[in-house]
Simulated scan of single mutants.
Amino acid sequence: MSEFLMLGWNVAIPEVDIGDDIFVVQDDSGTLRRVQVKTSTSTVRKDGFSAQFNVSVKNLRNISNILVHYVFLVRNHDEWSKPVIIRQDYLIDHFENNQVGSEANGSITFYFSYSKGIVECSGQDFTRYVNDYTDFPKIAH
């Protein structure tokens, strides 16, 4: 939440949890972004670390007029990784067309590996989504 606030966006926590963790709003234009935050603890690997995340199939496929931005964060030792920020439609596309993630019991497990500045998910390069605040440009007040 603090990163969005530092960019000048307003942040709110919905009172009813139906899949969105936070709403991020550009007050002067009324632009609304829905955000789902997923966290995991790292597993140390030879050249880096890895983590896995579970995403509800129902929530991922529930496309509305305001797409969800998924923020994946890993706790590695005593610090957080840089966030992987990916829009819902891109994540669905990776799942359906690039065999990213595995589906079981109503959820999709995404396995991320972090090594030498590269982030991969199921062998696909996700580095372009690291710190990708493209849809959250800095707002000057």
Rank of each mutant, 00 (worst) to 15 (best):
E3C: 07
F4T: 08
L5W: 09
M6H: 07
N10K: 14
N10E: 14
V11C: 14
V11R: 06
A12D: 06
A12F: 02
E15Q: 10
V16L: 11
D17L: 04
G19C: 00
V24G: 07
V25P: 02
S29Y: 05
R33F: 04
V35F: 00
V35Y: 05
V35D: 08
V35P: 05
V37G: 05
S40H: 04
S40Y: 06
T41F: 10
S42K: 00
T43I: 10
V44L: 04
R45T: 15
K46G: 06
G48Y: 04
S50M: 03
Q52V: 02
Q52M: 12
V55L: 14
N59Q: 14
N59Y: 13
L60M: 14
S64A: 05
N65C: 09
I66T: 15
Y70T: 03
V71G: 00
L73Y: 00
R75N: 10
D78T: 12
D78K: 12
D78C: 14
E79I: 10
S81N: 02
I86M: 07
R87N: 13
R87C: 13
D89R: 12
D89M: 02
D89V: 10
Y90R: 13
D93C: 07
H94A: 03
H94D: 05
F95V: 14
E96H: 09
Q99K: 13
S102N: 12
S102L: 06
A104I: 07
N105P: 00
G106P: 04
S107P: 02
I108K: 05
Y111T: 12
K116E: 15
K116C: 13
G117N: 09
I118M: 14
G123H: 05
T134K: 15
P137I: 08
A140D: 10
H141D: 04
